[in-house]
Structures are given as structure tokens and as C-alpha cells.
């Protein structure tokens, strides 16, 4: 496991991915033995992109 937040450089450590969207990308990473968590993503805030943006800016 990488040493989390202090390794923001990304390179030269173990890649560990949160996949948000295409299922295929998660499967392909798993094939490469990369640790991957595939989100069960749904459009936030009942479907409105503007509210989703607002919520993300509030850190939700």
C-alpha cells in the first residue's frame, strides 16, 4: 500500500485508483493488479448538474 496523502507525486509508488464512471476502466486496472475501488456512482443531487457543482464546492 502506498503511504497515502504524503505520496501525492503519483510516480514510482503503488498506483491505487478510485474509478468513477466507466466500469471497463476498473476491470482493466484490476487485470494489471492495480488496487481499484469502483464507485457505484449516481448523478448527485437528484440529477441537476448545477446543484452537484454547488455541493462539491461546499466539500460535500
Amino acid at each position: 500500500m502506498p503511504s497515502d496523502q504524503d505520496d501525492k507525486s503519483l510516480l514510482g509508488g503503488d498506483l491505487s485508483v478510485i474509478n468513477v464512471g466507466l466500469d471497463k476502466f476498473a476491470s482493466e486496472l484490476a487485470e494489471h493488479n492495480v488496487s481499484v475501488v469502483h464507485l457505484d456512482w449516481k448523478p448527485p443531487a437528484g440529477g441537476g448538474a448545477e446543484l452537484a457543482t454547488l455541493l462539491s464546492k461546499m466539500g460535500t
Binding site: L10, S16, V17, V37, A49, T53, L55
Partner: peptide, 24 residues
């Protein structure tokens, strides 16, 4: 759940992608 995560790979529809990236 995965404190070792170091990359978010985002491919949701464009209008929602920025909000997810901001959180990441």
C-alpha cells in the same frame, strides 16, 4: 475505505465530472 488511494479516474458525463474532480 481505501486510504491508500492516490488517483481518481473520472469518466462520468462532462457536466458532473468537474464536481467529482473537485471532491477528489
Amino acid at each position: 475505505a481505501n486510504p491508500g488511494a492516490n488517483l481518481a479516474l473520472i469518466s462520468v458525463p462532462g457536466e458532473f465530472a468537474a464536481a467529482e474532480a473537485r471532491k477528489a
